[in-house]
Design a protein around this nucleic acid. Structure first.
Lengths: 229, 229
DNA sequence: TTCCATTTTTGATCTGAATCAAGACCGCTA
DNA sequence: TAGCGGTCTTGATTCAGATCAAAAATGGAA
């Protein structure tokens, strides 16, 4: 594996504090692969043979039941999936597909479990990562159960806005129908919701969102750190 | 702390494999308290000062946003809450209230973090518990996003039925309005959903559910281990 | 046993969002 | 530049579930 990928893995908080020998054991059997868009990397129900790390690009985690599909999250640079399945040696609960052309690092799950058994710093990093994943899942559940679809979109935009330092123009990184699915609504409803936010300080121009009145948007959205943080 | 509670804590998988000295360090500052029903034990947004263990009774985790409330889960004997907040030393994302008269063990979070730092078996137990919590949260999110409220109720009943060894009569342990909230619907809709399941092998008699045709219920519910497991 | 407060059920109505359809728009390829 | 496939928007309609109201049922206390 090229040195630059090793550096990249090291930069990931999950691996930043483990010993050199452990790190070698993890990266020895790992490999990197480039995937075109729309490639299914893992399928729910399959054995969790690898822990995946997104090097570049964007990967969508999704799930299907009885012909119905929902987007669960988007994984971008330097994020991993699915640690809980890897650690527990259980089937993946979600599928993953590339949204854009992506480079993905794959580390065999048994290597992860092997190092987890003997490197206590790694175990602690894993604890932190899993706790964060769990808390994020709770925030997502609260968002879905407590808010209308318009409120979910408003808070989604507000969060993007704040994450980009208050910038007025935000460019969506994925297709709107994917965002609709993630927010728990249909593409038609997302389109209508964007229109509905016009009176709350938001304008649309193709893939570009303009937050023309952030205070007004915030007044409508009622962001909450325990959901949106 | 009475010996019987120590045994009880030991029986919890989170604590079963830690060293005696670690165990003593955890239980030294812990205490047990009995609470009547409808007592709020923790409130979302508060600092996570304790890890709670339900000794007897039932505790509901819930959340409120802008006057809207939703039930997130029910914690029964031998379950803990909220490990992720305790470990990360972050505010609770959910509140908790007793549903029935309950006995709850409280362990100071800083004692948990102290032992976590130095007992690698404990760190591993925590990893397992957090991974399970995270996976359960993903299953819940899938249930909410992919299924109608009737389907969620059908699968809820089917799961209870299987958990009780296929017994025909199941007695609900909590009020129906709480279950309605947990399943993401109003009490009125839950009532109508129970009625709707009459043609799928389910009958109601107050707090007692009768699964009179499990095969028929299963045919409608399409249970899936990746959601209901 | 009666009374009271709360929960549950039922009926009527409303609404947010889905579904279906069709046209407009966009990006890519030849 | 034109054509094609896919995405997005808009309109019309349907519907799952919420809301509101009222009656019935339930459990606990006096």
């Amino acid at each position: 594996m090229p040195q630059k990928h090793l550096v990249e893995i090291r930069d990931n908080p999950l691996f930043a504090s483990i010993g050199a020998e452990s790190f070698a054991a993890l990266t020895r059997g790992a490999y990197v692969q480039n995937f075109p868009p729309h490639t299914e990397l893992i399928t729910e129900g399959e054995a969790a043979d690898f822990l995946h790390i997104v090097s570049t690009g964007c990967v969508e985690l999704f799930s299907i039941w009885q012909g119905r599909e929902t987007s669960m999250s988007f994984q971008t640079e330097n994020s991993t999936f699915i640690l809980a399945a890897t650690i527990k040696d259980l089937p993946y609960l979600m599928s993953a597909r590339t949204i854009t052309k992506s480079r993905v690092i794959m580390i065999p799950s048994q290597d992860i479990r092997g190092v987890f058994e003997r490197d206590s710093m790694f175990a602690k990093s894993i604890v932190s990562e899993l706790a964060t994943c769990y808390r994020n899942a709770i925030k997502t559940a609260k968002n879905i159960k407590l808010r209308t679809s318009l409120e979910r979109l408003a808070n989604y935009i507000l969060k993007l806005h704040l994450a980009q330092g208050g910038r007025i123009e935000l460019e969506l990184a994925v297709e709107k129908r994917r965002i609709a699915s993630f927010l728990g609504m249909t593409p038609e409803n997302l389109s209508r919701s964007f229109a509905g936010l016009k009176s709350h300080g938001v304008e649309m121009d193709g893939q570009v969102i303009k937050v023309v009145d952030a205070a007004k948007l915030e007044e409508f959205a009622h962001p909450n750190a325990l959901i949106d943080g």
